[in-house]
Design a protein around this nucleic acid. Structure first.
Lengths: 199, 199, 199, 199
DNA sequence: GATGAATGAGTATTCATTCAT
DNA sequence: TATGAATGAATACTCATTCAT
């Protein structure tokens, strides 16, 4: 007989599941999935090891739920931005806003992003979810821009590339690893590059 | 008493160390560091498990050496390209060549790149090496371009950003995950973007 | 403080205890004691896991009660048969009837019998109960036969041996494992053997 | 990659594997399979827990090897007896010899027999092996008897039933559980019964 | 140097039993 | 009484590393 995973309905249970997820989120973020064990998750969540398996099928299941939370968090700010967008599009402003938003997201999610992204290599479900996520965002943005009159050829490709650029820069900007780089100047260059893609 | 790691001098020993590294390289590439055990590495290398610890301090030490090999491989093609570069620079040709080169490197190294990159998150030395690598390439290219008369403002930042763009695209191009993307069209857009950074 | 096990007096409670026992009986029969957990028993009984410990000291206590039920079931048919027996004894008919009865019991109880019997080895109480059961049956039958005029020497030993034979054959007959055996023919041989023990 | 189970070739390894098997044999005999854990086996064998998995795929694999040893031990004495048998068969002597042999086997193997037999209920491979064993013995004995001129009808059925009787009695005799039974007298009855099956 | 057997700490997961409600 | 969430000790199995030969 398959062990059943509890789907918590009551507030207390939801809270407990949430505490486990939070602990997983933090530990995976800070030391990575492979350097985290279930006992640590339980301890950090303030619960017993047993109950972890009441709410999750296995350790990987926690990862998958953490991924879902991350996706939710990473998704919405940019989409909100696009929702508010009205014609005519001011690409200078848009580029700035998008970069601000991306940097903000990255700032608060960088570590979990890294942790999850690093799991893509050995977990197909994680990898697939990341691809899906990119698909969804690309298409929503493309459609919105097209609806607002954007008419650059290969709009989808431009949007996708722009997203890559934004992500790549946000990462650089947050980790700020290269001492010889003037990130402010770099940001201006990136903004101009983004704008140039659409006008 | 600290066990000493041999620095192989004789040809047979060098060859043996190389075989271990090759096995590590392949296994890390294909199934990832955490899904590879030292017995597998030894077996694939055709050596005993014990001798692995004659040439390497521990499993992670193999990873670090694999990283060094990867760095070497990933490094040289672009540097060769820059070496041959002469004034006046034709940025259109250069962008094409660099992309070709990057895609080629990615094509043959994608899996190990992913594997190593995914280790960045939980191994600081790996992370540091990646950053160093970027530093070295950025500075060498910047210097070369400057020497050949490139005078765009914030040249270093432009070069670094260009590298990010190249890497990001090469990754996209090789993994080819998004069915709705016309990668040929995207490539043209990327090339133009790169050129625009310098002229 | 010792937890107290309820002795259910009210009808609802008795029914609940019975449902737990029935679930235990079925699960132990089908998958064995060690492959059954208390959550499964509770679920199959339609009660909470907690209340199981209201009616039973522990999991083993359920086993012991299941054993008692089994004993009761396995016991009565043969005893009824003996009750109806009248002098002069027709051993041919008796052998047939006893075998029929034993096979019938085995047919409907084979799995729980196996499950319980397999527990004899690691649970002394279970083992003891089986021995007691044999004692009771042997003595009751011996007494009845003696009362009806059976005068074979070592009657008790003959009865006990006959019981072993009957049990052994019923098991063979029900599980029917050996393709090369003609169980009909074997049955005739067994019947004759049984008769020969007493005339 | 599947972990490989060592097939020990050197004397030391064979000895070590044997020690593990012996420990398994004793523990399974004394407390049963389910009450034995791998750490105990390793400890009793004087080895580390890890190496147990060098010689055996898993815990069950130890059981299966213990079973094979038991089968070998239980098998040979009776077969030797039959090997030496010459026409004309003296069934009185044969019955005595077989009972002696069976009791001897049972005396030294009773506990492991119980343990293994009790596993039949939850491990199909164990169950199958027991059935095979019965098949082999029955057929070998039947053939031998037939070759020596035994001509009772349904000889195979008689042999199989005789084996059941022998086993059943050896078990009774060794465990000697029923205080009211005169096992010597019972033995005589059994012997006569066996003889009667063939003359 | 080389082998591969051996070690034993570490890990995910289960489950009998308890307890707050 | 009854619930089912919670506990945490127990367990099979793995694997980086060591060591006798």
């Amino acid at each position: 007989m398959e062990r059943e995973v509890r789907e918590p309905k009551q507030e207390r249970s939801i809270e407990k599941k949430h505490k486990i997820l939070k602990a997983g989120y933090e530990l995976f973020s800070n030391v990575g999935y492979h350097n985290t064990n279930t006992a640590q998750i339980a301890k950090q969540a303030g619960v017993s090891t047993g109950i972890v398996y009441g709410y999750f099928k296995d350790k990987r299941d926690i990862l998958l739920d953490v991924l879902a939370i991350y996706v939710e968090q990473a998704f919405s700010p940019v989409l909100e931005l696009m929702d508010k967008l009205e014609a005519p599009i001011n690409y200078y402003v848009l580029a700035k806003d998008v970069l601000d938003s991306a940097i903000g997201i990255h700032r608060s999610n960088a570590k979990i992003h890294e942790a999850l992204h690093s799991m893509s290599h050995c977990d197909e479900a994680v990898n697939d979810r990341f691809i899906e996520l990119e698909d969804e965002i690309t298409l929503q943005i493309s459609n919105k821009l097209a609806a607002l009159g954007a008419d650059a050829p290969n709009l989808t490709e431009r949007v996708h590339f722009a997203m890559d650029v934004v992500q790549s820069f946000a990462h650089e900007y947050i980790f700020d690893n290269h001492t010889y780089i003037d990130y402010g100047a770099m940001r201006t260059i990136v903004e101009n590059t983004l704008v140039a893609l659409f006008i």
